[in-house]
Design a protein around this nucleic acid. Structure first.
Lengths: 154, 154
DNA sequence: TTTTGCCTCATACTTTAGTATGATTTTAAT
DNA sequence: ATTAAAATCATACTAAAGTATGAGGCAAAA
């Protein structure tokens, strides 16, 4: 039963064909029209079945879909600082040295850093000196530059 | 097997055609229709133009366009520096001061900057002093910090 | 033409930064 | 318990950075 419902188009097509031919036969037998109307018949059949074909095609073939995938670029914030822990461990910076480095990057003077970390000025100097050694730089500005490049500070 | 399932519509169509021809044959025998070329011709025309209709339909119907917008994340590298010209003009930094600022941000010493720009050390000091005044800072590290924050250097 | 802003440089000075060395203490690992 | 690394601080020194002031040249604007 399901089969009939699902394929009723095709069955209808077959039925209509049969009906048409029956009509043709009947006409042929009834009116004995053979001569001139033959071409007309053929034309009518052609037109009719072309239309039928178009209708069938529309009914049966699943609708064509051209799927156009448009890639929309979504800009992701680049402000995602990911600490390069590889470099950090490679350099062997201690926690105090990191604090000092961060403070230097914040633009603080040694004196200010000392006050911030509750240490003496000399201690800051010692830390920064060792820091510069490990970073292989000579000045605090260079240290900031390099640290930024190595992604160990934002 | 897959072929059969996928093309069952076409196969059914063929089958119905065959059935139709059988019916025609039966009619021919039953009604004693001598001239059977007409039926054959009409059938052929029907089939042909049905096929033409299907083909035409397929050719002429415009495919539905399914536009799928895929959001593609684009991670913008750190190279997305856009110079804040508003701030720059507001601060009134001269070209030389900008060059010095950039050099300072590169981690160069005043001596190195002097050599890079073919100027004397004192000139660099003068420039940097005026630069710090305009940026309202006291040290070169602070200048770099602020300039970066104001987006006047990368 | 005069003014103005910019660039250049110098001298003199102060402040900050950075180096070298050594000592003590804390902390963590062997 | 011993060792090693880290952290703290000090002294002494050098180097670099930063300030203040003035002056000459130069090009564009008033």
């Amino acid at each position: 039963m399901k089969f009939i419902i699902r394929n009723r188009s095709i069955l209808l097509y077959g039925a209509s064909l049969a009906v048409l031919l029956l009509i043709m036969k009947w006409l042929e037998w009834r009116l004995i029209i053979i001569d001139h109307t033959f071409e007309l018949y053929a034309g009518a059949v052609a037109v009719l079945f072309t239309a039928l074909g178009i209708w069938l095609s529309n009914k049966l073939t699943r609708p064509k879909t051209n799927t156009i995938i448009v890639e929309k670029e979504v800009v992701v914030e680049a402000g995602d600082f990911i600490l390069n822990e590889v470099e950090l461990t490679r350099l062997g910076l201690t926690s105090r040295e990191m604090e000092v480095l961060q403070s230097i990057a914040d633009g603080l003077s040694n004196q200010q850093i000392a006050e911030r970390l509750f240490l003496s000025l000399n201690t800051i100097k010692t830390h920064s000196s060792k820091l510069f050694e490990k970073l292989e730089v000579q000045r605090r500005t260079q240290a900031v530059e390099k640290a930024r490049k190595l992604k160990i500070i934002p």
